[in-house]
Structures are given as C-alpha cells and as structure tokens.
C-alpha cells in the first residue's frame, strides 16, 4: 500500500471524536469538525455540518442518507476531490487540508480509487487504456502499465474485452473496468459513489460482491448509497441527515448481505433487514 507523502507535515491528533475507537491502531481517515458550505446561490448552502469520522484500515463503510443529506459531498471530501470549508482531514495521521495541488493530486492518484455511479470511463479509450490512465499520472512505464491493466481486467473477467470501448460494453462490464481502474495504483482506500445505481439488480450484486471480495483481501472501502440492500454489503453503516452524522454502527451479521462465495450463510435477496435506529427505514424500501 502506498504511504502518504513523507514531505507532508504530520498533524498532532486532538482528542479523538470518532464514534468507534480501535485501540492501538491509527485511523486511515480522520475527519474532525469538517464542514462544507456551497456558495453557488446568494444564500450559503451548508452540505456538511461538523462531521467527525474515523475510518480504520480494512473497514467496509456504507454511508447512507436521503438525497441532499451530504453523503456525496462527504465522499468527495474523503477522496480529496473537494476541499472542506472548515475542519481538518487527516490521512494516515497526516493533515492534508491545505496541501498544494501537486501533493493533493499525488494523494488522489496513489491513495484513492474512485468508482462512480455512471462509471465515468473515457469513451475514446479502450478498456485497457482506461485502466492505464491513473498509472500514466503515476509515471508508470508503458509496458508495466499495460501488464498491470491487463492483469486487473483478467481478474475481473474482462480478458476478452480489453480492447473494447465503453460503448461496446454492458453496464456491469463498464463498472468492472471502472473498479479495475480504481485499483490500478494499489490505493489505500476505495471510494464508491452509488456504484450500482445504473445497473440491473443482478449486475449490482455482482459489483457489490466484487467490492466485498476486495474488502476481504484488506482493501478499505467506503460506499455511498441510498439503497439499504447495497449498504448491507458493508460492515459498518454511517447514516447522514442534513449534513450531520446521525448514526454510526457496525452491522450485525444478520443484517449483512454476503457474497455467495464467502462461505458464510448468505441471506436471500430481500431478506436483509432494514437498520434500526436513527434514519432507519428512510431508504430501506428502495432496496426491496
């Protein structure tokens, strides 16, 4: 796994405000009092309001909330795609708020992998070229880029589709290419924004099983969704409402949906229970 640039100044952690403490293990992500306000209209629109969040390495966090709750904004800030208006963001104990563009770009390139709802593949490039793009910005040599891209696509069952353009691939295949691209530089954290939003149920479950498999291999994953069925693939549920965290808990085994090959009892579709507590049930119906 890549490490945060050593040139960055290490921050002194203040009193942890994270809801879940894991003793003796430094959080991978630590948000402290993060707010985000948009100024696109005359009236400032707050999107996040005092977010405190810790994510440990290896976690699979599902972020749920209704539309406008700030879950996508949170994901963008987590991925350093957007800057918080105030508050602090520590990655592996290093403050990344206020870093120059070059270092932030490097962090996005090396530490984060992004999976978007609409795949966001470059339509002009083939599948293998799409996977190569992040490696290109990482300065990986052409031959090595191609080797790694082909290996990733093979792994995700796209060996026969390498030279196809996105328009020649199904939605599920496109999203698998996107996941392969997200993993190209061996990121620390995989961030997925409604990764199954544009997919039929079967393909959606296939993608979530894939993410679960990656998590089982040690990859830290944050998935933003409004769909309880998707959220139930995670191990931990963070619920957002009006830009605040209103719930943060581990999912009970009975609540979790596990991929078929995990060797653990897998609940049948539709049998996953909606979460109890704050925010419970606000989107659960959508998954049924």
């Amino acid at each position: 796994m890549a490490r945060v640039d050593e040139a960055m100044m290490p921050a002194t952690p203040a009193t942890p405000a994270a809801p879940r403490e894991q003793a003796n293990e430094a959080p991978l992500i630590w948000l402290r009092g993060v707010t985000k306000v948009y100024y696109t209209t005359r009236t400032p629109v707050p999107a996040l309001n005092g977010i405190d969040l810790k994510i440990q390495p290896g976690e699979f966090v599902s972020v749920m909330g209704p539309s406008g709750s700030g879950k996508s904004t949170l994901l963008h800030i987590l991925g350093a795609l957007d800057l918080p208006t105030s508050g602090e963001y520590l990655l592996e104990g290093v403050r990344i708020t206020g870093l120059p563009d070059r270092k932030l770009s490097r962090i996005r390139n090396r530490h984060f992998g992004f999976v978007f709802q609409n795949y966001n593949l470059f339509p002009e490039l083939t599948a293998v070229e799409n996977v190569e793009v992040p490696m290109l910005y990482a300065g990986v040599r052409a031959a090595e880029r191609r080797r790694r891209a082909e290996m990733l696509l093979e792994r995700f069952g796209l060996g026969h589709r390498m030279n196809h353009r996105p328009s020649e691939l199904s939605g599920g295949e496109q999203q698998r290419v996107a996941i392969a691209r997200a993993l190209a530089n061996g990121p620390t954290l995989l961030l997925a924004d409604e990764p199954t939003g544009n997919l039929p149920t079967a393909h959606g479950e296939e993608i979530m099983s894939l993410l679960q498999e990656l998590n089982d291999e040690g990859m830290t994953i944050v998935v933003v969704t409004h769909d309880w069925r998707i959220a139930s693939y995670g191990k931990r549920l963070v619920e957002l409402q009006d830009g605040r965290i209103v719930g943060d808990r581990l999912l009970a085994p009975a609540e979790r949906r596990l991929r078929p090959s995990a060797g653990v009892s897998t609940q049948a579709e539709g049998q996953a229970r909606a979460p109890a507590g704050p925010g419970a049930g606000f989107e659960a119906a959508s998954g049924a």
């Binding site: 563009d101 070059r102 490097r106 996005r108 990482a138």
Partner: peptide, 15 residues
C-alpha cells in the same frame, strides 16, 4: 467533465 475525471484520477494542474 473529462478534466474533472482526470483530476480525480491524479492529474495535477500542471498535467
């Protein structure tokens, strides 16, 4: 959109 995507994938301003 493409520029945003490239920035997300690690392209710097200079790139």
């Amino acid at each position: 959109h493409s520029i945003g995507l490239r920035r997300a994938l690690g392209a710097s301003r200079w790139s």
